[in-house]
Write a protein that binds this DNA or RNA. Structure first.
Lengths: 138, 138
DNA sequence: GTAGAGTCTCCTCATGGCAGGAGAGTCAAG
DNA sequence: CTTGACTCTCCTGCCATGAGGAGACTCTAC
């Protein structure tokens, strides 16, 4: 027998202390729907369940893997629907690998161009009023 | 003999047309000091010299090489002081190469971590209420 | 009952490089 | 002289992820 309407739970400061995250961040996550509170105290204070800690760990982990909060929200939505989110997470992480590959490719290309320019760089070329920097031809 | 105080020059729309850049961008550049106008018309319209085109080419080129507008401003300040900016540009581009190297390094490391995770990924692992996604251990 | 800590909502700011629009003034052609 | 295109300044918004603070309220310990 559990008292009906009985809401226990951590206040935001306690969750901040235990998770190591700033109160501001927790409020922000709650606003985004990443971290639902189980309710409010009579005075309007957010109350969080123990599971919130696990949830924040999950969020932190996916953040370090480069997912956006929105993508993480998608994963959590699946979890909250009662399903295992592993499949969705796998998809998101796969996309992330592709994004990274694209970025590395762009960066390599840019690096190559820069190196090419710097390889033939003349610190003190003939002055040419038609261009600002002769090494760049512009 | 040139008439004193005589200011000719393009208006911003003409410069936009010839450079291919939006009027908004040109105004923004002028505000930042990247693209000085030679003056204003009686009605307050910005007037630009022919050299503005060359200057915009220079800006465009350095932008594609990944420099920020602020860094480009530094280069142009050297040029405007009457010196050849090649040395400064060389320094900036060298820094840019280092930045890129750092980014590539980070991206590779992240990619490696992602690949490691995905390599051992189980789409349908045993359910475990203690964690949201067993593959991540969180 | 009172002090002090905690929490609430709401607002602004930060980054970088502009885009969109309001409202007013200017310029060139007919 | 009028009309329509151009330009002016100033304000706001965008992208993401919060940080910082004001002013008001709540809770807890003494």
């Amino acid at each position: 027998m559990v008292a009906v309407g009985m809401k226990t739970g951590m206040k935001i400061g306690a969750l901040a202390g235990r998770s190591g995250l700033p109160v501001k961040t927790l409020r922000y996550y709650e606003d985004l729907g990443l971290l639902p509170a189980i309710g409010r105290s009579e005075g309007g204070y957010r109350l969080f369940a123990e599971e919130s800690l696990q949830r924040l760990e999950f969020i932190r982990r996916l953040k370090t893997l480069g997912l956006s909060l929105e993508e993480i929200l998608d994963c959590l939505a699946v979890h909250d629907a009662g399903e295992l989110p592993c499949g969705d997470i796998q998809v998101q992480l796969g996309r992330q690998v592709e994004r990274i590959d694209g970025q590395i490719k762009e960066l390599r290309q840019l690096r190559k161009e820069l190196q090419g320019l710097l390889a033939g760089w003349q610190s003190d070329p003939a002055k040419d009023d038609a261009v600002i920097c002769p090494n760049l031809h512009v």
